[in-house]
Nucleic acid binder design. Structure first.
Length: 101
DNA sequence: TGTTTGACGCTCC
DNA sequence: AGGAGCGCCAAAC
């Protein structure tokens, strides 16, 4: 029986996101098995340690924008661009980068 | 056990 | 097109 907490599941879903692609919090939550729980995804990611190997930066809101307050926002943007995800006007082209399996 | 909180999403103005 | 408000879900207090 999977006694896995949301953290575990979210992490797994997160690890499934290919490089150069992004997903919304809602999608991530759904992938983790919590449809409609987009907020949960965000709150869970918030707990992740800094040196996390997980691609937490590939998660953005449905508007294609970075939801993080300042400290991490810049960091996330840099990581995304580094993977090839271009932010135009601080926005990501969901039509192209949104992970669509 | 009940209430509040969020790295959200969608609709309406 | 941009901004505001209401709704959802699970975890934390």
């Amino acid at each position: 029986m999977e006694k896995q907490n949301s953290l575990e599941r979210i992490c797994q879903a997160l690890a499934a996101i290919p490089k150069g692609r992004v997903v919304t919090y809602g999608d991530l939550a759904e992938m983790a098995g919590y449809p409609r729980a987009a907020r949960l995804a965000g709150q869970t990611l918030r707990k992740l340690p800094r040196g996390t190997k997980l691609p937490w930066h590939r998660v953005i809101n449905a508007q294609g924008r970075i939801s993080l307050p300042e400290p991490g926002a810049s960091r996330q943007r840099e990581k995304l661009e580094r993977e090839g995800v271009i932010l135009l006007k601080g926005r990501v082209d969901m039509g192209k980068y949104r992970w669509k399996p």
